[in-house]
Design a binder for these strands. Structure first.
Lengths: 336, 336
DNA sequence: GGATGTAGGTAAACCGTTTTAATAACCGCG
DNA sequence: CGCGGTTATTAAAACGGTTTACCTACATCC
């Protein structure tokens, strides 16, 4: 049996009201120190924990946040999830995980969770698929929603300093002496645009050309990077360095280069946006720009809680810590 | 405002009781078809969804399951999480994510979630750290708990066919003609023992020696694989093939071999337990035994639900689909 | 025509907390 | 001694469902 507040009350010789008010520190409560102590002792003795459901019912808030992503198994999302989970726990909220593609397949559980008030707010990592739209409309009309890695006019959102990170990556290649630098971008989202901007600006500022032919669409999977790189390798004049918008895509890009008989970094330099633990163990080891994914997740939770507090939706860019260049073996000066 | 069951009742001209019983399909309810239709129509028109909290309070079960892992960002765990999440959703339960190391650091949120009845049961992927013990004692006395990738006498548990997978990997090397096959095991857990058994049995059955010197402890990180492999490379007589207990450790092992000037697979064959999407893009591409991680997650949820239904704890081994050999470029016949 | 049955509901308690308004006990004061 | 003012505590409603027991028509049967 659960031990309820009534049990504690009986044990302490008071009514449930007193127990509740003591335990929650009601400032309007006047109570003798001795009574307070009896209540606290009883609660401790019985190992009392308030019922989550009863609280949720009474307060009309669940103390839970939802997190919906496309690919739980993607290590980058994993970092976001970790950051979000910790921040939520710190704030006394639990984090509930959902799978966007599952949801959109008419997953009734999610609908019930949102409309039934099982979660107070939603973090959403969309990827531009049709599923996203469905999920957003289901959720955002009922509960505050925060977009991760994205920007929106109507909803709150958090993003990384995509432009800054790409600038850093591009500048690294420029500093090495590259004059023909391509960009394998990640997709058609807003953040992709920021990255393109970072790439273009850096080249322009260095007096170099940002040839549109060097801007090719990849994706955030190994295969999309492979395909994008194959495409890019056919472009003339051929670039000597490429900024890849995602670390998994970069792995595919390395494969494509190898297929084409190009040596990395001697013939072609590759630098990835995002870093992963094993990047240093690839062959060649992969130079990357590490982005604060964990902090992104934490910031998203903070923003969501802020919204739950009644604040207006806003857009936040996570710049702390800054994007960091991790120079490894896949970048070098261009061939002479 | 939320639309409550009372609103629906008023709209349909009946009492809340009828609405509840119609919507939940109470077999003991006698109702005219016309009335039933009115109720259903009202519920649809008002877009009614029952309150999660109220149900949870009344039924004394939350409709939520907890999943606690050590490393959310680990791609292997990601697969488990995905499988569990989908299975839970299918069964009408939501999945709640927790971070074991966070929990053990005196995370009050988790304690409140378990003791407050926010989750009905817990899936736990332990790793043999002291944190695990704390979490287990917190949870398992209050709610049914299922151990993932492990075995226990007192608790329910699910595991993979670790012995079978290792047999498959070892046999692959034996078939290629290797006679000196080492095993870089993953740790001190029960499942590690199963793998050692698979390795030993296969070699013995082939009339080969399972030299204790060829059994070295690694781990499930890149670094632990690196360290373990360095150790193994000092052993004489040197093995010509090695079965690595984890794919991340295998990546570290490849690095160690490269450091030592060994060519893979010409001088040394490496095969990993577990497969990941990018394994084919490593250099050399990594031969691996793919294990049904997603199904493991799903089976764990099924077992937990079974326990919630009152069944006794039992141990389940997920054998469907079977471990599958994915032959790639890191294995070849031994040097002549 | 009174007992019996059955279809079609309804009333009310209950789950565990929180919170507001009310009340009892006590005190000093005139 | 009766009154106002604290101080300490309580009673009760409310949150939104579910469920059991009960009630009311109406029809049936002998």
């Amino acid at each position: 049996m659960r031990v309820s507040i009534t049990d504690v009350a009986r044990h302490a010789g008071v009514t449930p009201a007193v127990v509740s008010r003591v335990l929650n520190g009601d400032p309007k409560l006047q109570v003798r120190a001795e009574t307070r102590d009896r209540v606290l002792a009883a609660a401790r003795d019985l190992d009392y924990t308030p019922s989550h459901a009863a609280r949720a019912l009474r307060h009309n808030r669940a103390g839970a946040l939802g997190l919906a992503v496309h690919d739980v198994a993607n290590p980058l999302y994993g970092e976001i999830i970790l950051g979000a989970q910790r921040a939520a726990a710190e704030a006394g909220h639990v984090l509930l995980l959902a799978d966007i593609d599952g949801l959109a397949r008419g997953d009734e559980t999610f609908h019930r969770a949102v409309h039934g008030g099982a979660i107070d707010g939603l973090l959403l990592q969309r990827a531009g698929t049709p599923s996203d739209r469905k999920v957003i409309t289901t959720a955002s009309t009922r509960i505050p929603t925060v977009l991760l890695n994205d920007r929106s006019e109507s909803l709150a959102s958090v993003a990384l300093d995509d432009a800054g990170g790409t600038r850093l990556a591009t500048q690294h290649l420029v500093d090495l002496g590259h004059t023909r630098v391509a960009h394998l971008k990640v997709g058609g989202t807003q953040r992709s645009g920021q990255r393109v901007r970072g790439w273009r600006e850096t080249l322009t500022r260095a007096g170099l050309s940002a040839d549109p032919g060097w801007l090719v669409a990849g994706g955030h999977t190994v295969d999309s990077g492979l395909a994008g790189m194959r495409e890019l390798l056919a472009v003339r004049p051929a670039p000597t360095g490429v900024v890849v918008g995602n670390v998994l895509a970069a792995i595919g890009a390395l494969t494509a280069a190898r297929e084409a008989g190009l040596r990395v970094p001697e013939d072609l330099s590759v630098i990835a946006f995002h870093d992963v633990t094993y990047a240093g163990h690839l062959v060649p080891s992969l130079t990357a720009v590490a982005m604060p994914m964990r902090e992104l997740g934490a910031a998203a939770v903070a923003l969501l809680l802020e919204r739950l507090g009644g604040a207006d939706p806003r857009h936040v860019v996570v710049r702390d810590p800054e994007p960091m260049l991790v120079a490894r073996g896949s970048t070098a000066p261009p061939p002479a």
